[in-house]
Structure formats: C-alpha cells, structure tokens
Write a protein that binds this DNA or RNA. Structure first.
Lengths: 146, 146
DNA sequence: GTTTATGCAAAACGTTTGCACCCTC
DNA sequence: GAGGGTGCAAACGTTTTGCATAAAC
C-alpha cells in the first residue's frame, strides 16, 4: 500500500502530527517511545518500553516513560491494560476496538472483537440505567491440546 | 479444648467447614475475615477489610489480611478484582458467576450476568484454539440522566 | 508436641513527584 | 526567551516477606 494522499496507515509520524495539533511538544524521548509503541506487536509494560528505549537512547529515564504513557493515555493515543492485576501494559490505540485473550501459560495476548458481545453489553448497561464509557473484556485461557 | 456446637455464626460457617475439609486451619483472624466477607455487600480492598476487622479485634494485622486473602483466593472462596488497575478488591465467591458494572462517578459496583455473552465468549475462544479458565468483564459506566 | 499462623518491621514492587537543569517552540 | 520536559533521587501506596512468638490441631 503506497498512497501518500490517502494516509490511512498508523505510523508514529501521524501520531506526531496529531499530538502537535493537541499542543503536545514532540521531544526526542517522546518520539522514541512513539516509535517503540507503533513497532510493537505485543503489549509491553513501562519497564519493557524503557528497556527498548534505552537501546536507542541510553540517557532516557524510566520516569519519562511513565510520564509519557500517562500523557499518551490522556491524549487517547494508547490504551492501558492491567491483566491479572499486574503492572500496566500498553498498546497503540490503533484503528479498531478489540478485547483480549490472555494465554495463562505463555502470557501471550491475542486480540479479538465481537460485535454481538458489544451490543449485548450496551443492552445490559442501558437496562440498568447506565451508559458505557469504556469496557474491559479479558478471557484468561489455556491452549486446547489436540 | 472442646468443640462447642453452638457458635454465633452467619453463613461463613459453611465456608469454615469446607475450608477445614481442605486442611485449612480456622484461626480467630480467619474467622473474623470470613465473617466480614460474607456480611459485605460491596467489594472492599484489603485495607478496608483490615479496618472492619480491627473494630472486632484490634490486634489483627494487615499482613494477616493479605495472607488470608491469598489463601482464600487459592481455595476458591473469594474472587479478586483490580478495577481500574487499582488495589485488589474482594468478594465472597457466592453461588453464581457474574460480571461488573463500575459506576465511574461513585465507584459503586453493580453485578450482572448474561448467559448469551458467556456463550459467545466460549465460542470465540474455542475458534481461536483456547479454552477459558476464567474471564473478566467490566463495564465502566455513567448513570444515564433522565 | 508438631505444624502452621500471626504480628511486627523491613523490603519489594510499580508508580509518582519535587527539584534543578535542559530543550522545544 | 518562556514554558514545558527531563533525569535523578526520594517518596508513595500496595503487597510480600523474614523472623521470633503464639495458636491450632
């Protein structure tokens, strides 16, 4: 896909522009973290992001990672998860909403989406007098052995 | 040391028997905590359980609360939640499984259950090669204003 | 009497914050 | 140049742990 006019891809450059528009300064550190996040297929925690960042710039600090994660969360650029009540793990707020299967043996995270479940959630909340702001659906699973 | 048949107990007596059967010693502290849990309509965290326990026995310690919560969780007697990534909050593992609506303004927790959602979850997991061990569904909501 | 639980204090853990200096706009 | 961002170290809130004592079985 190579169409400079139609920019539907989520590169960290896009995010930089959006963040700039929101009045966020793009520092060297923030750029590094944004790149790490858009390159990540997994759901790293702050320490792991810090480790990956240090390989690019060994002067970066863990506090900056934490501060940046909070900022990006507020800007809606990332999502924060607390699987198993463990440390926060982050992912790029890509295009589509999705939920998570957590492999209890490996810790791997698989994403899925069910429009049916989403609708049922809305229905249930509405019946109880609530509107959903956001939700969290996590399936803690084991691989089925064949 | 004799075993009085009469003990001013609530429903936690059932739990005591089950725990005894599992080889768990019923100490004064554990009895107090079990009572607090079966009396609680809300989802208190460890500190709140500690506060309630101190009113009954002011020599109880916070470590004992934490150790007991871990034990009871392992025994399947309670469930642990980490709403919003905050401190663990606990509830008696009552009869039925249910999920949670968290009122974002008040912090109140409303319980609900949807057999349809449960079935859809199973279906999705199976299709991806997983079996669900347990799951977590939390709807972070605002009250609808009329 | 043996085994296990407790209380206390200290440590561990993930995260936030105060401050002096540095960089982006 | 002004205002916000950074690194560092120290503080934080939650949870765990080592150890000597106490209680359950």
């Amino acid at each position: 896909m190579h169409n400079p006019a139609m920019n539907t891809m989520t590169t960290s450059n896009d995010y930089e522009q959006q963040l700039r528009q929101a009045g966020v300064r793009i520092t060297r550190q923030r750029r590094i973290i944004l790149n790490i996040l858009s390159d990540s297929e997994d759901h790293p925690d702050a320490l792991e992001i810090f480790r990956r960042a240090v390989e690019i710039d060994n002067s970066i600090s863990l506090s900056t990672v934490y501060r940046t994660m909070k900022l990006l969360e507020e800007q809606g650029a990332i999502h924060r998860h607390a699987f198993n009540g463990g440390p926060s793990r982050f992912e790029h707020a890509g295009s589509d909403h999705h939920d998570h299967i957590i492999d209890m043996e490996s810790g791997d995270v698989v994403e899925f989406h069910s429009e049916k479940i989403e609708r049922l959630q809305e229905e249930i909340a509405r019946e109880l007098g609530y509107e959903i702001v956001h939700h969290r659906l996590e399936l803690y699973c084991r691989k089925i052995k064949k």
